Simulated scan of single mutants.
Amino acid sequence: MRSRLALILAAGVAAASLAGCGAQAQPEPEETASAAECTPSGEASDAIEVSEELGAKPTVTFEAPLEFSETQRTVVVEGDGEQAEAGAAVEAELTLIDASSGDELITTEHDGSQPVAVTLDETWPPGFVKALTCATVGTRVVTTITPEDGYGSAGNPQLGVAADAPLVLVADLVSIPEPPLARADGEPQELPEDFPAVEVVLAEDGAPTVTVPDEEPPAELQIGVLQKGAGAPVAEGDNVTVHYVGVDWATGEIFDESWANGAPATFNTAGVVPGFSAALIGQTVGSQVVAVLPPDQAYGDDPEAHELGGKTLVFVVDILAAS
């Protein structure tokens, strides 16, 4: 459910199906406990020259191949904002480089326009977590990431990361958004009379059970508000945190959900299928939305192109945060 870039970088988070990226196995952390502490600098990370101009893509210079045996983290620019703690959801701009060749693998603009939502927990490779944990908002850090703390023996083909490749990461910590709501908390709303007769029943924790009517699905995108939140509206391009459940109209079966994972999903509105994005943009934080997506607003008509191709999908979404 997160943006495509975040999914490719995380390479193994839940809800990847909606953004169109497959999950990959995570390597074991090199030092599990150290992710909750400030990772120290070292000879290798100190040897990397990184430009200090924030708001612009960094210039990164080092002699390749850069050799190191541990993940090291050097602060290039010290910010004066809030400090990121282990487990926090943060937004950062990132440049990832192959330490062996010096080749840039992926980068954002570093101008605030492309922040990546990163959760500082086991859903991300340990090296990314070590880079950003303890950083303060406004900080730029450079981190040497061992293969064990990166993508391990699996690598990351979508990024061009080879098996057992060491990496260099430059990260700018842009913001630490307010913690998301636990569930939608808005005022109950009546659905339009012509809205499909989808039934939504909530458990005590807010998890919805969705019952699809025994009738032909609508041919057009349908969006209804079940609860109207009092928070800020979701804008196009926002990173949003949601709880959701997705149901196949034809079978009534759940094909994807966040509730079963025990944690909400965070993604960019530009990184999901069109109907899901349309169901969020303009809605307010705290709202619960139900949307019926025909194939042209979901995964298209071809079941060979995607396992959900040709299907009408029903989503119930709690909007918990947006930034």
Rank of each mutant, 00 (worst) to 15 (best):
S34D: 06
S175Q: 12
E67R: 08
V273P: 06
I8T: 09
L18R: 09
T59F: 01
M1Y: 09
P274K: 08
V285E: 03
T123F: 02
A321N: 11
A203F: 11
V234S: 11
D98M: 14
E70V: 15
G87Q: 02
V129R: 00
V292C: 05
P147A: 04
L105P: 07
V247F: 05
V50Q: 00
V201P: 10
R2F: 13
F255D: 01
E67K: 05
A235M: 12
P180R: 02
S51H: 08
V289L: 06
L169G: 00
P264M: 00
T71M: 00
A203M: 14
A86R: 03
Q114V: 06
K130T: 09
T71I: 04
Y151G: 08
R183G: 11
L293A: 03
S34M: 09
V225L: 09
T59W: 04
E53A: 07
D80Q: 04
A64D: 00
A162P: 04
Q227R: 15
P29I: 06
S153Y: 05
D111Q: 10
P274S: 07
A47S: 14
V317G: 13
D103V: 15
D164H: 08
S101G: 07
L308F: 09
P29Q: 03
A260E: 10
A250K: 11
L293K: 03
A64T: 01
G309K: 08
S3A: 12
Q26G: 10
A250G: 13
P213L: 00
Q26C: 07
E49K: 01
P213R: 02
V247S: 01
A298M: 09
E28P: 03
A14W: 00
A19C: 11
Q227D: 15
I48P: 01
E85Q: 06
T39M: 11
L320W: 15
A305H: 11
L105Y: 03
E253Q: 08
V168Y: 01
E257N: 09
D214N: 14
T133H: 09
A15F: 05
K130L: 13
Q283K: 15
I8G: 01
L169F: 06
A278P: 14
I106Q: 04
G127M: 10
R73A: 00
G231V: 05
G138M: 02
G186I: 14
V245Y: 02
V60Q: 04
P157I: 10
